[in-house]
Amino acid sequence: MSHGYQFVGWNRQKKLYDLTLLGAVLSYLLLFIVGSIVLHPDAVIDMIILRALGTCAFVLLHVILAIGPLARLDRRWLPLLYNRRHMGVTMFTLALLHGLLSLLTYHGFGDTHPLVSLFTSNTRYDSLSQFPFQPLGFFALILLFLMAATSHDFWLATLTPPIWKTLHMGVYVAYGLLLGHVGFGFLQTETHPALFGLLAAGCLTLLALHLAAAGKETKLDTQDGFQQDGEGYLKLCEVLEIPNNRGRMFFVGGDRIAVFRYDGRVSAISNACQHQNGPLGEGRVIDGLVTCPWHGFQYDPATGASPPPFTEKVPTFNLKVLNGSVWVHPNPNPPGTYVNPGLVEEPGHA
């Protein structure tokens, strides 16, 4: 939601987020390098830096993958979601440095092109302990590059959020490739069981978090049995069940809608923010505008349109309030269509 495109739309929160991230990454690298020198004084510095970069990127990837489900389970994790793409670009940068250093170290001093050598020096696909793990890392890096390169809002608009999101779900494919890269590579050389245990713990923790988040979300998507009137309106809830200046979400018309109560009125809009399909129903109404909890995009609840000069719009739904109940028609109106808000009947009034 901005006037024009810039490299990064800096604000105080983003600066704080990025400084914290940079501090954490540098601290990790420093601790790893110093610790390795102390524990293995004969180890080569190239290998230490290689492993520092690789492990830092992999740990950061676990954090990135955990943020999504954590934010679903508890709203207090939402601030980490806000600037997650910066974390992703940082992780890609670390992985790229690791990849370039590895390519140079292992394949840079022969007569074969390093990239060709990467694929042809080891073709033991029939072996587990000598499985060619480096190509797995290469393909993971390609996926991470595609995600980092398309992390700007321009690509969200150009590719549209659903397609952009599909591309960025490639992070799970990258994670699987990296599990293989680490499992068939590093962990075949360094065989301490604790290291394998760490890898397994990270993977299982992510799977468990995603399962828990899915369990919570699925309940909302399997809502059924709304009472329907002769005009096709569905009775969703009682007005007073919706907190003031907040929303509630329902699964209607093939996807979620968000019903908001504000200034004595009730309106219903599509739940998916036009920016990154964030959940508008989890946002607040601030100064009369529905505010997306992910990145702050705003919409007028009666029209589903962003205030000028911004042009984002979401579909709206016809709504009526009868005897304190909210009734919504499941057929959406085109984005930006004005719908008369329902009036909240105050207790004690006719």
Partner: peptide, 20 residues
């Protein structure tokens, strides 16, 4: 898929480095 990758990697370690 992910646990399968972990199991295969563990089998590679258990069988000793060098051959499957």
């Amino acid at each position: 898929t992910f646990p399968a990758i972990l199991i295969l990697a563990w089998m590679g370690r258990e069988e000793g480095p060098g051959y499957s």
